[in-house]
């Protein structure tokens, strides 16, 4: 369980805006092991989005090394990057990014459509399993517009799970949700990490969300300010139970 899946050394990423060169990431090094739950914190402009894009193989570093599950990402072509994302990564976005007017199960199946190894029946089977893991099996034929924000985000998490990724990348995944729903999502993510052993990298700027992770990397001006193991991990489930019960409706559908 202790194998290194992300190995980043002296990573640099520079953008040219006009004549100025902006150093979004300046000499960043760290490793991620299987089963970790890391939050990446930082104010806007600290380089956390760039780091996530690089971790997610959406862009390549200007300099430095990035090994993802043993593959040197900087040497891959665009198509190979796409393949890597398809097989090894799961994405959860702030705005869910579900396809409108498309049922939950079809949204979840989406990554496997780009993988020829799966037949239609296998795809469906895996999608049902993934929806089960996020406790939305009974809503699989609902359209995104028929689901609450929390439920939509859980569909998105199921979509990130379907290809059994080595790492799930979440970009402000609770940013669009109220605090109660946020805790529900964090509860789910903690469960995926603890029970299913999923490696999770969670970008956020909310310190109380970071409390639920096992390790926090804080960025500032493109450099790592702090990389600390969280000794006092919060339990989202416990926090949720302490909240006053919702008055109007419950979004939990266990």
């Amino acid at each position: 369980m202790d194998s290194v899946i992300v190995d980043i050394k002296n990573l640099k990423r520079e953008f040219k805006i006009g004549e100025e060169t902006v150093k979004a990431l300046n000499d960043v090094s760290f490793t991620i092991k299987t089963g970790e739950f890391i939050t990446i914190m930082g104010s806007s402009g600290s380089g956390k989005t760039t780091l996530l894009n690089i971790l997610g193989c959406l862009e390549k570093p200007t300099q430095g090394q990035y090994l993802l599950d043993g593959t040197d990402v900087s040497k891959l072509s665009k198509n190979e990057l796409a393949r890597l994302r398809n097989k090894k990564l799961g994405f959860v976005f702030q705005s869910y990014n579900l396809l409108a007017r498309t049922s939950a199960i079809e949204n979840v199946e989406l990554p496997l459509l780009y993988n020829n190894e799966f037949s239609a029946s296998e795809r469906k089977e895996k999608a049902i399993k993934a929806l089960e893991a996020v406790k939305l099996k009974d809503r699989m034929y609902h359209l995104p517009s028929q689901l609450s924000g929390g439920q939509q985000q859980r569909v998105a998490i199921a979509r990130a799970l379907i290809n059994d990724p080595v790492m799930i990348l979440a970009d402000e995944a609770t940013g669009n949700l109220d605090s109660r729903t946020s805790y529900e999502i964090m509860e789910l993510i903690q469960e995926l990490n603890d029970v299913h052993g999923k490696t999770i990298v969670f970008v956020t700027h909310e310190p109380d969300i970071a409390l639920f992770s096992k390790r926090t990397i804080t960025l500032k001006d493109g450099k790592i300010l702090k990389d600390a193991i969280n000794t006092n991990i919060g339990n989202a489930k416990a926090v949720l139970e302490k909240l006053p019960a919702p008055e109007e409706f419950s979004t939990t559908t266990a």
Binding site: G56, K78, N79, A82, N86, L99, P111, Y114, R159
Partner: peptide, 14 residues
């Protein structure tokens, strides 16, 4: 946006 999503999920340009 849908195109961006599909690409991030592993769709190639092709």
């Amino acid at each position: 946006k849908e195109i961006g999503l599909r690409m991030s999920l592993g769709a190639r340009g092709r």
